[in-house]
Design a protein around this nucleic acid. Structure first.
Length: 1115
RNA sequence: GGGCGCUUAGCUCAGUUGGCUAGAGCAUCUCGUUUACACCGAGAGGGUCGGGGGUUCGAAUCCCUCAGCGCCCACCA
């Protein structure tokens, strides 16, 4: 006994240490791994780790993905391949932004309160945090990925790749900007791609109604509120009821002004549904939009981006939420007796896949990727007058044998799913109105320096009422001062003046005079007043409270240079610009009132009216002089009291007229502003396999082509070997990578796709926080160890099928890991020579026992089968086989035998090592730790794989196939044990046995030591050739061998036993008899099969004869 | 509406191209302190392979059909 080894394996004690050893070795990085290459071919093997979202923590889904990938990586590394596993994280724009929004909501804030910049700071802070959590947890799983190559989708290099590809696609006319109906999530305030919309079955009401009394057709709808935007009614052309109306136009009024309804025909309309007539709402339904396109109908947008009805819906509805509007219009219909009936129906509701908010289809101007446009790209073998969709279909097509670079999906059935999805793919909307993500590399020329917006925002600016300071001609700056009596009156007057004006929202500066004016003017109007400190008066610093006359003189001097301790007009301009950009982000198409001060108003002149500061000040002076009384303006005729109306961007201004620049870097020159939209997360994820392999010092390369050509990793590791991921993101991600990569590089992103299933709970339900049925992988690791967790996810699962997880399962594998540990503990503690297997080849051959040959033979078969299985992605089978071998053959039989036969150090050591090698990719920690305890020089992680390809000598011992022979001995032993249990022989009691072995006598004799000593409790064993007399003993038959156990017989029991055995065998014989009696079977079945049946028949006949004889003798 | 998958022991699953009396783990029951391991060992019971039909000498396996469950896609207002 040389070493003290703990009785039980303690994963907590070893895992972190082992991981550190691996990391330190540098072997995660293929550049520094030279380990065992000499025996195997120098192929490359690479996997891009599907980037976990930079949000939250690792869940079981990640754990299973990591287990599979690490398994493949470790296997291939041991095979001697140049192996790279590249880790990273995805910024996951919408998921992350939603998450951070929720966090700041708890602080009572919205993203607008923070502003774009500050909000993004918060997001990045959050991302950094969860990134490090995820990284640590990835390590906990034992992942042997190359951390030196870790990437993040928002890295500099990866971001450039995004801009490069966007630009390239734009130049190839694959990206265009279109005014189309899109999926809009009112909560995220962003568009969504078609597949980011989920459908939920819901009960809904189907209303049957007429637009008005004179309208001849009843239509049915589940969304009455959208009827305010109807411009047609569609009927099936074959529908006799409505044929006469087709082409006619009716004028209706739903209370939002008159509009025309044209009766059109469309084959898509189902005659049997509802009334067979469909109200067409072009702006708010995907189907209707297409009909409108075909029929050239007007598209009236009545629902805004905030999910509320807009002015097109009419005065009664404007500002109402969709549901409020629904109620209201139903009331209207009821009042006017227009409703025929209301039906309960099941409908599918579209919701956002990130926040479950109902989706509004809206027309909007967005960026799209054209998937059906055929293009030709020089040097790209795929794109020769082909579309993205066509190539994506071609590349995943088993039937197409000619295609040399095709992608194989495992399991195969998902290729069908993929095709089905791809064939139905529409142009992909890639712009998002999110803040977090890659800004779209598009710049607009705009004199104001503010992003152009088509829908426009109306700003009505009110300077606050006269204050006490005003009356004294004092400059107030940031000093809080009260309104004078006049000021209060002015504000009240203004309230009356603008009585009929509707504002969506009011902003005021947070200084008292502005707050008071605003609340006097806008009280009781049901409009929200928001204070914003960016609207404050210019801070005049030391001049605050000085006489105004002085300010007037030197006002122009404050343009660039602040007064001491104050700020300049340029500073004011800056904060106002900032404020306006916020408005643009949130208040598209809204009418806004601002109540603030003079300087901010001048800044608006500068920004929106394109004045210089000098001009603005001069104009202001003129006005002031003209009217003498300080703070009244009448620049716009609309109001007669201190107001100015700005329309930030005129409505309907077309982008065609606008100068636009698309490129990787910002354009030269002034007044370019970048589009504030960001790109769909999946756009950057689509580049993941190659953007991560591009050189990170990208600045060196001026062109993209140059950059690509000078990235050695890309050459070496791309296409990646396997893409391992869950089937749930086949479309989101896998499909997009195929689209984007074949287009950009002219090669596929990966050669194989391995899809694993979803991890579910014991009942097969999805794990979720709300159900509380989730299992935390880290908790499992702490309790049972990483290896146990890994095994419990790999064994018993098949590709593409969901896997059920529960704690007992992990516990079971923990037990196995401990068993392996104890196997090694026994061997190490009992073996003198554990040094490297410089095993003298052939030396133990001469005295190799049957058991030796049997176990070695089994090990050889195991090695071959496991290698085959792993090559064919049959991970579960491979793992199960090793486990079975280890536990059953090795531990339960062979080690026990070694205690009897002795001197098996070399073989025990050899088998243990082979098992460790085979098992390492599955359970890296415990195997590495045992390996270390064997005083090995190298890490197991880089040990050569166990099969013939990697080792000169797969097995140093001669192995003859004697499996059958050993099984005879096993069966004899099992039969004796069985009988002992059945006859309740006391454990300690020794028994005597006689075996009649016929011509196997000598063979059985040679193994008598095993029969005696392997828990059979046999004291005296006689082995004879022929059954000379039947003794008064328990009788057993194993094949053609008969066994008598003496001294334990209970005649009644023995009789029953034998009878039962006879019964069973008779049943069996009957089956074989009918088979053999069937001429068709004998004539048609393969000879071997028939022969086997005959053998079985004869054997059973013999057996039954013997048993019958035995029964007779008992009587 | 279209497509896909699943249904094998009480539970979780194996079962390769049809061919050894359909297997394993957990659970149950009976024994057990033997040079590692009770996170263990020795044994036992438990299944008309969802139902029905077909192809075949032979079906858990291939085909059809029905039922139940689950998933994905789709513009049923």
């Amino acid at each position: 006994m040389k070493k003290e080894i703990p009785k039980a394996y303690d994963p907590q004690e070893v895992e972190d240490k082992i991981y550190k050893t691996w990391e330190k070795s540098g072997f995660f990085n293929p550049n520094s791994f030279v380990g065992n290459r000499h025996t195997c071919s120098l192929q490359n093997f690479s996997i891009s780790m599907p980037p976990p979202n930079a949000t939250g923590v690792l869940h079981l889904g990640h754990a299973s993905m990591l287990a599979y990938q690490d398994l493949m990586i470790r296997y291939n590394r041991m095979k001697g391949k140049n192996t790279l596993w590249l880790p990273g994280t995805d910024h996951a724009s919408i998921a992350t932004q939603t998450k951070v929004e929720k966090i700041i909501a708890k602080e009572g804030k919205t993203k607008y309160d923070l502003g774009r910049e500050k909000f993004l700071e918060r997001v990045n802070e959050y991302v950094e945090n969860s990134k490090s959590t995820i990284k640590n947890q990835t390590r906990k799983m034992g992942s042997s990925c190359d951390w030196s190559r870790e990437r993040y989708t928002l890295d500099d290099g990866l971001s450039r790749a995004v801009r490069e590809v966007f630009t390239k696609m734009f130049n190839d006319k694959l990206i265009y900007r279109g005014d189309r109906i899109v999926n809009w999530c009112p909560r995220c305030e962003s568009t969504l791609a078609d597949d980011e919309v989920e459908h939920e079955e819901q009960k809904g009401k189907l209303y049957y109604f007429k637009y008005d009394k004179d309208f001849p057709i009843t239509i049915a709808t589940t969304r009455p509120e959208t009827k305010l935007g109807d411009t047609a009614v569609a009927v099936n052309p074959k529908d006799e009821r409505y044929k006469k109306y087709i082409g006619k136009v009716f004028e209706i009024n739903l209370g939002n002004g008159k509009h025309k309804i044209k009766i059109i025909s469309d084959r898509e309309v189902e005659i049997k549904f509802g009334t067979g007539a469909l109200g067409v709402t072009p702006a708010h339904s995907m189907t209707d939009w297409e009909m409108a396109e075909k029929n050239d109908l007007e598209k009236i947008k009545i629902i805004g981006e905030d999910g509320k009805m807009n002015e097109n819906a009419g005065k009664d509805y404007e500002g109402l939420t969709v549901l409020e509007a629904r109620e209201k219009i139903v009331q209207y219909f009821e009042k006017n007796n227009l409703i025929e009936k209301v039906e309960e129906v099941d409908q599918s509701l579209s919701i956002c896949y990130r926040c479950d908010t109902p989706i509004e289809p809206l027309p909007s101007k967005q960026w799209f990727v054209a998937v059906d446009k055929k293009i030709t790209i020089g040097g790209n073998k795929y794109f020769q007058n082909k579309s993205l969709k066509e190539i994506a279909l071609e590349v995943v097509n088993k039937a197409d044998e000619k295609n040399d670079k095709k992608i194989e999906i495992i399991p195969e059935r998902f290729e069908k799913t993929y095709h089905n999805w791809m064939e139905n793919l529409h142009d992909w909307c890639i712009s998002r109105q999110l803040w977090f993500g890659h800004r779209i590399p598009v710049w607009y020329k705009n004199e104001s320096g503010i992003r152009n917006q088509e829908s426009g925002i109306d700003i009505t600016y009110f300077v606050h009422g006269t204050t006490i300071d005003n009356e004294k001609n004092k400059a107030s700056g940031h000093y809080d001062v009260k309104l004078s009596k006049l000021g209060i009156q002015q504000s009240k007057d203004l309230k009356k003046t603008i009585e009929n004006e509707k504002f969506d929202i009011v902003f005021c500066s947070d200084l008292k005079r502005a707050v008071d004016s605003a609340s006097l003017t806008f009280s009781d109007r049901g409009v929200k007043i928001i204070q914003d400190e960016r609207l404050r008066e210019c801070d005049y610093g030391d001049l605050t409270q000085a006489g105004a006359s002085e300010i007037l003189v030197i006002e122009k001097n404050v343009i660039d240079k602040p007064f001491p301790k104050g700020e300049s007009y340029k500073d004011v301009e800056k904060r106002i610009r900032d404020f306006l950009n916020d408005l643009i982000d949130k208040y598209q198409g809204k009418k806004i009132a601002i109540v603030a001060h003079k300087a901010p108003q001048l800044a608006l002149d500068v920004i929106l009216k394109n004045r210089t500061w000098e001009q603005a000040i001069n104009e202001d002076w003129r006005k002031t002089k003209e009217w003498q009384a300080g703070w009244k303006y009448e620049l716009n005729n609309k109001f007669d009291n201190s107001s100015i109306v700005y329309t930030m961007i005129p409505k309907g201004k077309k982008y065609k007229n606008q100068e636009i620049y698309i490129g990787t870097n910002p354009p030269e020159g002034k007044n370019w502003t970048q589009d504030t939209d960001t790109l769909d997360t999946w756009f950057s994820s689509g580049l993941w396999t190659f953007s991560t392999l591009l050189n990170q010092d990208h600045e060196k390369y001026k062109t993209f082509e140059d950059w690509v050509a000078n990235s050695p990793d890309l050459k070496k590791f791309h296409p990646t070997s396997v893409m391992e991921t869950g089937y749930d993101i086949l479309f989101f991600w896998v499909a997009r990578m195929i689209l984007m990569t074949t287009y950009t590089l002219g090669e596929v992103p990966f050669e194989n796709v391995y899809l694993h299933g979803m991890v579910r709970d014991k009942q097969g339900k999805k794990m979720s926080k709300s159900l509380g049925n989730g299992i935390d992988p880290i908790e499992m690791i702490e309790k049972y160890g990483t290896d146990a967790l890994r095994l419990s996810m790999i064994i018993g699962s098949s590709p593409g099928n969901d896997i059920k997880m529960y704690e007992e399962k992990v516990e079971g594998y923990r037990n196995f890991v401990n068993k392996l540990w104890n196997v090694s503990r026994y061997i190490i503690m009992n073996i003198d020579n554990t040094k490297e297997a410089g095993l003298p080849i052939g030396s133990p051959a001469s005295d190799a026992t049957l058991a030796d040959k049997w176990i070695l033979n089994n090990l050889n078969n195991l090695t071959k089968e496991v290698t085959d299985d792993l090559n064919n992605y049959k991970f579960s089978q491979a793992g199960e086989k090793i486990k079975e071998f280890t536990w059953n053959d090795f531990a339960d039989w062979y080690i026990e035998i070694s205690k009897i036969e002795k001197n098996k150090n070399e073989i025990l050591n050899y088998i243990l090592k082979q098992v460790l090698i085979l098992f390492h990719p599955f359970i890296p920690f415990v195997t590495e730790e045992i390996w270390k305890n064997l005083d090995s020089e190298n890490l197991l992680m880089v040990e050569k794989w166990a099969d013939r390809d990697c080792r000169e000598q797969a097995c140093p011992f001669p192995t003859i196939t004697t499996a059958r022979d050993f099984e005879i001995i096993q069966n004899i032993i099992k039969a004796i044990r069985n009988a002992r249990a059945e006859y309740k022989v006391e454990p300690g009691k020794k028994i005597e046995a006689v075996i009649y072995a016929g011509n196997k006598k000598e063979f059985i004799k040679s193994q008598a030591h095993l029969i005696k000593n392997l828990r059979t409790g046999i004291d005296k064993l006689e082995i004879k050739e022929k059954d000379d007399k039947i003794k008064d003993a328990v009788y057993l038959v194993v094949g053609d061998i008969e066994i008598y156990l003496e001294g334990i017989i209970d005649k009644e029991k023995e009789k029953k036993n034998l009878e039962k055995k006879i019964e069973n065998i008779e049943k069996y014989i009957f089956q074989i008899k009918t088979k053999l009696g069937n001429d068709d079977f004998v004539g048609n079945a393969p000879r071997e099969i028939v022969e086997k049946e005959r053998e079985k028949f004869m054997e059973s006949e013999k057996k039954i004869k013997k048993l019958k004889e035995k029964i007779k003798s008992l009587l």
